[in-house]
């Protein structure tokens, strides 16, 4: 019905992939949006320079959960540098940039028209950034 709630987003929000704890996780970060109470916890298993597995838990709006779900799929097998590049592309995408070759993630494009919702789309990615930097802490949309 809207350019925001594409089928891909709704589908990921209803059935998020890689949802749950991650046995053997060695990195992680929590992402919170104090304004709406969204809270997700990201778990990573990193070996050498590679993200071997990623899962998340928590609750949030459809945009937040779908973005987290797609992120866990996209970063699996990436190097930290690949993940950082992808993260930057997502930031650009929700600010109105192009989504070429981003696959399903391109469905977040509609967020660009809803400035108030960009934080929802980026929460998981900010958690990823913190987790990869080894800051096993909390990131907030308001910092």
């Amino acid at each position: 019905m809207t350019d925001l709630y594409q089928q891909t987003i709704v589908e990921h929000a209803k059935r998020p992939r890689n949802f749950g704890p991650l046995p053997g996780a060695n990195r992680g970060a929590q992402g919170v949006n104090p304004l709406c109470g969204d809270e997700i916890e990201l778990h990573l298993r990193v070996e050498g320079d590679r993200v071997e597995a990623a899962t998340f838990e928590g609750a949030g709006c459809a945009v937040c959960v779908a973005s987290a779900s797609m992120m866990t799929l996209a970063v699996k097998g990436s190097s930290a540098a690949d993940a950082a590049r992808l993260m930057q592309r997502v930031r650009d995408l929700v600010a109105g940039g192009d989504g070429k070759n981003l696959g399903e993630i391109e469905s977040l494009k509609g967020v660009a028209r809803y400035p108030a919702r960009r934080k929802c789309a980026l929460l998981a990615w900010r958690a990823l950034e913190a987790a990869l930097a080894g800051e096993a802490t909390q990131v907030s949309t308001e910092l």
Partner: peptide, 13 residues
């Protein structure tokens, strides 16, 4: 089953 912000955005539409 629907987050309030998603309700708000659909209603805004």
């Amino acid at each position: 089953g629907v987050h309030p912000h998603d309700v708000g955005t659909v209603l805004d539409q």
